[in-house]
């Protein structure tokens, strides 16, 4: 990751007004952030905190009341900046009377891509998002997850340097959400910058390098995920190939007491529910016909197989 700044906002403010110009709501107040090349940047906050407003201001869908936003050094209102941007809205707002191929062809034309490039990219992306067998079906027949996939494909049709994703995992099942997160990480690995906005904290924690937390239009926290989440007053120790016994607990208490500390909790580590769910689904695919047996929930949960991008990062 370099420190080249791709997106910069300077005192970016948005105040919604009514028809007569009277102030209705301050959606965003003096936001100053920088997003660097090759990072995954997360915008977090509760509903109405200003996340989507920030994205819309960056994309020129809204005009700032005060302040400025620059993308690739160009003002947000400059249409030419869109050449290097891919955008996936919260809902996949696409034309439902088109099929997947027509959708990508249409958006490819908007980028003025030559026909051959358009066709090649469309086929690659359809394959990448796993819609090869459904490419001739109208979007109105697609499930929410499929629409989100084709939405992502349209956002990538121009091979963008900056991908802006508004709630990319919203409405997706855990499998879909994992697929989406893997793809986001893959994009980052390809050197692209990703801005994602979400209120699903686990998603942000899983993939984001840096985050900004907004509340009621104000920037509350901003920085690297690791740094922000680190609790410097506590120490976590993980050990393997050892049984948790009373003796071990007493020994640990003694050692910690010598250093002026104490044990808060001692126990077996748990995996996340998402990892557990994915492993169960994976195993059921490997063993068709297997079903739940009473008492099996007491089986030891082994750590998930570290085979995909997200678990590798952990």
């Amino acid at each position: 990751m370099t420190h080249e700044v791709i997106v910069e906002t300077r005192k970016l403010t948005k105040i919604y007004r009514d028809f007569w110009g009277r102030q209705k709501k301050t959606a965003l107040r003096a936001l100053n952030i920088e997003i660097r090349k090759g990072e995954i940047f997360g915008l977090l906050g509760p509903n109405g905190s200003g996340k989507t407003t920030t994205i819309k201001l960056l994309l020129g869908l809204l005009f700032p009341t005060e302040g400025e936003a620059f993308l690739f050094g160009k003002p947000a209102a400059d249409v030419s900046k869109n050449e290097r941007i891919g955008y996936l809205p919260e809902e996949s707002y696409l034309y439902r009377f088109l099929n997947a191929e027509e959708t990508l062809d249409f958006y490819g034309r908007l980028f003025d891509l030559p026909p051959r490039v358009r066709e090649t990219r469309a086929q690659e992306l359809i394959e990448k998002v796993g819609l090869k067998n459904d490419r001739k079906r109208k979007l109105r027949e697609y499930s929410k997850g499929m629409r989100q996939r084709i939405g992502l494909a349209q956002a990538l049709i121009n091979d963008p340097d900056l991908v802006i994703l508004d709630e990319p995992t919203s409405g997706l099942d855990p499998l879909g959400a994992r697929w989406m997160k893997n793809l986001i990480v893959e994009l980052r690995n390809l050197g692209k910058t990703v801005i994602m906005c979400s209120h699903r904290l686990e998603d942000v924690q899983d993939v984001c390098d840096r985050i900004a937390i907004l509340n009621e239009g104000e920037l509350q926290a901003y920085g690297e995920v690791k740094t922000l989440l680190q609790d410097v007053n506590r120490v976590e120790l993980r050990a393997s190939e050892i049984q948790l016994t009373e003796q071990l607990r007493r020994d640990l208490e003694e050692v910690l007491a010598r250093h002026g500390g104490r044990i808060d909790t001692v126990g077996h580590p748990t995996t996340t529910l998402e990892d557990y769910f994915l492993r169960i689904v994976e195993e059921s695919k490997r063993h068709p016909g297997r079903r739940y047996q009473p008492g099996s929930e007491k089986e030891t949960i082994k750590p998930a197989v570290q085979s995909d991008a997200i678990t590798e990062r952990r």
Binding site: L59, G60, I85, Y87, Y93, L110, D112
Partner: peptide, 14 residues
Amino acid sequence: KQQTIHTIVTKPVE
């Protein structure tokens, strides 16, 4: 209304 225009104006479209 259906916000399909969002995916158009965020492309390099005048």
